[in-house]
C-alpha cells in the first residue's frame, strides 16, 4: 500500500466520511451510550475491534462468498465477533457490559459495520479493508468520545468518572440532551471541516494561479 492510499483511506474513515459526524450512521448507540465518557469510549473501542476484524475477514472471503448470500454471510461473521466481544466484556469488564445493555448485541445490525462490509471490504484487498475498518472505527470512537465528554462534564459535572464540580445540568444526560449535543457536534465538525477544506482549496488555487502566471510570463 502506498503512502497516498494510506492517507486517503485513513482520512476518509476519520474525517471525510466520518460515520457518526458526516454520514450520521450508528445513531442509536451514539445517543444512548454517551451519557458518560467511559461508556462512549468503551463502545467506540468495541466498534473499532469489530469493524477491523469484520472488514478483514469479509475481505479475505470476498472471492468465496457468492453475491446472492453475501448479506447473511456478513451478518453471521459480524454476529460471531459481537458475541466474542460480549463474552470478553462480561468476563473482564462487567460494569461496561452492564452499561451497554441491549446496545452491545445490536452492533450486529449496526449500519456502519454493514456499510463498510458491503461498500469497501467486499471489493478491496485485505490490508486496505483492515485499515478502512480501523480508521472508520477510530472516527466513530472519537466522535462518541467527544459527545460523551461534553455530556458528562455538563450533565454530571465529572470527567471519566472523576468529579470536577457539584454543578450539573441534568438535561444533558437525558435523551433530549443527547440529540442536542449530537446536533451541535455535527454542526461544529462540519463547519470546521468546510472551513479547512475551503482554506486548502484556496491555497491550491493560489498556487496554481501563481504557476500559470509564471508560465504566461
Amino acid at each position: 500500500m502506498n503512502k497516498a492510499k494510506f492517507k486517503s483511506i485513513t482520512s476518509n474513515g476519520i474525517l471525510k466520511n466520518n460515520p457518526t459526524l458526516r454520514l450520521v450512521l450508528g445513531t442509536c448507540p451514539t445517543l444512548a451510550l454517551t451519557a458518560s465518557a467511559f461508556n462512549a469510549v468503551g463502545m467506540g473501542v468495541a466498534i473499532i475491534f469489530i469493524l477491523t476484524l469484520s472488514n478483514t475477514i469479509i475481505s479475505l472471503l470476498r472471492k468465496i462468498i457468492p453475491d446472492e448470500v453475501r448479506i447473511p454471510a456478513y451478518v453471521m461473521i459480524i454476529a460471531t465477533l459481537v458475541t466474542i466481544v460480549r463474552m470478553f466484556l462480561e468476563k473482564f469488564i462487567p460494569t461496561l457490559y452492564e452499561a451497554f445493555g441491549v446496545f452491545l448485541p445490536l452492533i450486529v445490525v449496526n449500519c456502519v459495520i454493514l456499510a463498510r462490509a458491503e461498500s469497501f471490504a467486499s471489493k478491496n484487498p485485505v490490508l486496505d479493508s483492515a485499515l478502512d475498518g480501523f480508521s472508520t472505527g477510530i472516527g466513530c470512537a472519537i466522535a462518541m468520545g467527544i459527545i460523551g465528554i461534553i455530556r458528562e462534564i455538563l450533565g454530571s459535572g465529572s470527567f471519566f468518572g472523576i468529579k470536577l464540580y457539584d454543578f450539573r445540568i441534568e438535561f444533558f444526560t437525558s435523551p433530549a440532551g443527547a440529540f442536542f449535543v449530537y446536533g451541535l457536534t455535527i454542526a461544529a465538525f462540519n463547519a470546521t471541516y468546510k472551513a479547512v477544506e475551503n482554506y486548502i482549496h484556496k491555497k491550491n488555487f493560489a498556487l496554481q494561479l501563481k504557476e500559470l502566471t509564471k508560465e504566461a510570463k
Partner: peptide, 29 residues
C-alpha cells in the same frame, strides 16, 4: 450456484459456531 451458496453458508455457520463454542469455554463467567 444454489449448492455453492448453501455450502458456503453452512461452512461459515460451522466455523463461527465452533469458534463461539471454544470462546464460550474460555470466557464463561
Amino acid at each position: 450456484k444454489t449448492f455453492i451458496c448453501i455450502v458456503v453458508l453452512l461452512v461459515i455457520a460451522l466455523v463461527c459456531g465452533g469458534l463461539l463454542a471454544i470462546m464460550n469455554d474460555l470466557l464463561a463467567v
